[in-house]
Design a binder for these strands. Structure first.
Length: 592
DNA sequence: GCCGTTTTCGGCCCGACTGTTTTCAGTCG
């Protein structure tokens, strides 16, 4: 964990503590914002504090600045510690129980001295919650279910798995008789790397047909448990442990619902605030003039009885607010609304811009297909080139190639490349970056290759200083063209190297070394935030699948989506170059 | 706690749903 991550976590916990203590919700929200800001920024907080530029970051005021400075100087925050000491630590995880919020947690603590989820379960079973004011039989039941639900749902699911579940359900929803149109919304539509729950939106053929559609939905074979069901919404837990909410709206309001439920929450808050500035109000039904809206009759679950400024599709809503429509993947309140207002949203990279994959494996190391099979599969995808990059000798477990085998492999790749039509094969290697930054092969060997990917595979628990120096040394090697999966992280499994990206991106930009977005789940490494910082530093990206079979080449789309979330255009990605441009890129870095 | 091209004080996004209540509080997304 970097110091940025540590501080981000500290502010998130601080916000939760304030909520439970019942302090101003705005104070808690302010700290939540600081937490998000620190988690996503590429600014090195240690440097920013030293230069006195902390206060320049929007959202960080005097109090937050002092907490950060205190933490940097002393390894802890006195403000935080004194608040933390006044609230039992066991209360914080209770916030994860659905249906249980800070007010109820505080109430149970004060009235019944309940200090953890375990104590809460016991108290419910022993009937000790009877007689607490504001907590009735149903509420107790709801809490009980919430505890069971938290145990049943497995937390956040990886995007690849969640997408598969969601698309299967979406196909079924689209076939239901009452449904005109249906789409995925929520964080899955934004393609976040992990998904808490899935939001589906369905437009009804008949406004009153919601109940029937909801009923069908709850009877799908994927349903493990029904969490709720009405005429505008149904909620289920799937057999795979994923919560899926289906929203049912009239066709005329589909755009507004899609916008609203795609979010993110922060994007929507900023957008609605912008609407207010312009005398309008935005909600899940549409964009309305405040003067009209205030006069309208509003019934719960029905569209307001007044003509909206916009509601049919997302584009007309953004347009009415004077904005370009940001791609769903950009809607994270990371500057997209300001850019949209200035007409400066980037032209994002697309799958069709990709001309080849620069990182793949064959049976020579730990892949399962031959050079020829991989080449044909790449050609079938319309690629102009494919780099074969099997592992180097240190990767014994992956049957890594020693120098002799590698040189024979290079010959073989070139031989097959000369025979096959319609695609250029590049003979490369995924060379291990050893723990001190040395390459797993001598430069004389690397010089025989068309392209070199250098990746960290071992010693992934190094401290920031060591890990950063290690990658810097690799970047400075004239034969290294791409740093593969730079952090080595595995989502949900491994943190990866705690790199200081500032100097790394600077060195990569100056030397003409690309940084990889490894498209294979659970790598997705670099992630969206770091990839965006890389682009800002002038670094070129390389999006690769790290395919270990012909099927693995299909993961490219997930790398593209990370790149889009990083605001990347095709000019930022070397996989969009032609073969000769690519070769001259490699040549430029090498000694003459 | 943070912010300001109407503000250095007074706001801070919005609606649905649920439960415990007779008019509202809490939770959620």
């Amino acid at each position: 964990m970097s110091v940025n991550d540590d501080l981000s976590a500290l502010f998130a916990t601080f916000a939760a503590l304030l909520q439970i203590k019942g302090e101003s919700v705005f104070k808690a929200i302010a700290f939540q914002k600081v937490s998000r800001l620190l988690g996503e920024t590429s600014v090195d907080l240690r440097k920013a504090a030293a230069e006195g530029s902390l206060a320049e970051m929007e959202g960080i005021g005097d109090s937050s600045r002092k907490i950060i400075e205190d933490y940097l100087a002393n390894g802890k925050s006195a403000d935080f510690d004194s608040v933390a000491a006044s609230v039992p630590a066991g209360l914080l995880p209770m916030l994860e129980i659905p249906g249980l919020g800070p007010k109820t947690i505080a109430l149970l603590w004060k009235e019944r001295n309940i200090q953890s989820a375990e104590e809460l379960s016991k108290a419910i079973d022993a009937g000790k919650l009877d007689g607490v004011k504001g907590i009735g039989e149903k509420k107790i039941d709801q809490i009980k279910q919430g505890i069971a639900l938290r145990a049943a749902s497995k937390g956040r699911m990886g995007i690849v798995q969640a997408l598969a579940v969601a698309e299967e359900l979406l196909a079924r929803v689209r076939k239901l008789p009452g449904v005109e149109k249906a789409e995925i919304a929520g964080s899955l539509r934004r393609r976040r790397e992990t998904i808490g729950d899935v939001d589906l939106i369905a437009a009804l053929k008949d406004e009153n047909g919601g109940e029937a559609v909801a009923k069908h939905f709850t009877q799908f074979p994927q349903v493990e448990r029904v969490l709720g069901q009405g005429k505008t919404k149904a909620s289920i837990l799937t057999t795979s442990g994923l919560q899926v909410d289906l929203r049912l709206v009239p066709m005329a309001h589909l755009g507004a619902a899609l916008q609203y439920f795609t979010g993110s929450k922060e994007h929507n808050v900023r957008l609605r605030s912008l609407a207010n500035d312009q005398g309008m109000t935005l909600n899940e039904w549409g964009l309305y003039r405040v003067s009209d809206y205030d006069k309208s009759e509003k019934k719960t679950g029905e569209a307001p009885a007044v003509k909206p400024v916009a509601s049919k599709n997302e584009a007309e809503i953004y347009s009415a607010l004077g904005l370009q429509t940001p791609d769903p993947l950009l809607r994270e309140d990371r500057g997209e609304i300001t850019a949209a207002a200035d007409g400066k949203l980037p032209k994002l990279i697309e799958l069709a811009d990709i001309r080849g994959d620069l990182h793949s494996h064959t049976v020579a190391s730990d892949g399962s297909d031959t050079i020829l099979a991989m080449a044909e599969a790449a050609r079938d995808r319309g690629y102009q080139f494919l780099a074969i990059t099997d592992h180097s000798k240190s990767q014994v477990i992956a049957n890594g190639l020693d120098a002799k085998r590698l040189l024979a492999h290079v010959k073989e790749i070139h031989k097959i490349g000369a025979q096959i039509k319609g695609i250029t094969l590049l003979a490369g290697c995924e060379v291990d970056i050893l723990s001190d930054g040395q390459m797993d092969f001598e430069n004389e060997i690397l010089a025989e290759l068309d392209i070199v990917i250098a990746s960290p595979h071992v010693a992934l628990r190094q401290d920031q200083e060591k890990a950063t120096q290690r990658l810097l040394r690799a970047i400075e090697n004239p034969y290294v063209n791409v740093i593969g999966h730079p952090t080595g992280r595995l989502i949900h499994q491994r943190e990866g190297l705690p790199l200081d990206f500032g100097p790394i991106f600077k060195a990569a930009a100056e030397s003409g070394t690309a940084m990889e977005i490894n498209a294979a789940y659970p790598r997705l490494d670099l992630n969206d935030v770091h990839a965006r910082a890389a682009i800002a530093a002038g670094v070129k990206l390389s999006i690769n699948t790290d395919a270990h079979s012909t099927g693995g080449l299909g993961a490219m789309i997930f790398g593209i989506e990370v790149a889009r979330r990083a605001w990347a255009g095709s000019v930022d990605v070397i996989n969009c170059l032609g073969v000769s441009e690519l070769k001259s890129l490699v040549r430029r870095k090498r000694p003459r």
